[in-house]
Amino acid sequence: MKGAAGLLARYAEDRVAAAALALFALLALAALAAPWLAPQNPYDLAQLDILDARLPPGSAAGATELVYRLGTDAQGRDMLSAMLYGLRISLAVGFAATAGGLALGLLVGLSSALAGGRVDALIMRAADLQLAFPAILLALILLAALGPGPGKIVAALVAAQWAYYARAVRGVALVEREKDYIAAVRLLGLSGPRILFRHLLPNCLPALIVVATLQVGAAIALEATLSFLGVGLPVTEPSLGLLIANGFQYLLSGKYWISVFPGLLLLGLILAINLVAERLRVLLNPRLQGV
């Protein structure tokens, strides 16, 4: 590794990946700046007007100066604003779930590797079990039991994804553990946690970054799917998946914009993340160098 700048330069050698990173940065910025960018606060019911419901893109609002560039939904919500705020929620849920999964996976994976023996075997059995069961089903059952809500969907996503991280971390940690320098610091009498954070963790990072980037995309897609199935987020603060679901019933009657635009945005977001992850995988995995 030749430092962050070097990594970035090598990253940018792939034009598509560079464009994907730019797109992702742009979307993330738009999500952060949504309250200032959006012409309307789509969650403030006082700003919506039912008389403006289901207007096609480019329509002017009846009572205000607003122009609905991407049309309105069934409540008269400006689609552009709803999408910007939805993007915010999708990204927040995706990142929160990834952070949670990462933290849990890291903890479990590292302790598993450090403990070894029976504990290790038991933890990895549990991870296997979880991996053998499709994430969508696990999250669906969990949410059905927990009920909808942003916190709950994050919890369900963490439960569905922690094992990926735990596996990856343990794999790297096991390799590192056998290396001489760990044996050396152990001889120095350093405490367990210290070894963990000062030595093992940094070496696990590259692998984790790759897994985490991929999982952010997966988490966002999964959240959208669950919201579409009606077990995700509340209707008044729709994520991208819920916007698409809400537009479903209008699709057959030709009001395409309620479903199509959020879908394109969701696709762009996941695609950008996956392309970045793909490039990182190549860069950070020495075995794949040049592939």
Binding site: L45, A46, A74, Q75, G76, P148, P234, V235, T236
Partner: peptide, 27 residues
């Protein structure tokens, strides 16, 4: 029919009369 939409629309209308509304819908 359209239950979720109706709740939101009425919430919208009540805000115009000065109430502060929130909407919660569930299966």
């Amino acid at each position: 029919v359209n239950d979720e939409q109706v709740v939101q629309t009425v919430a919208q209308m009540l805000t115009r009369a000065g109430l502060q509304t929130r909407v919660e819908t569930m299966p």
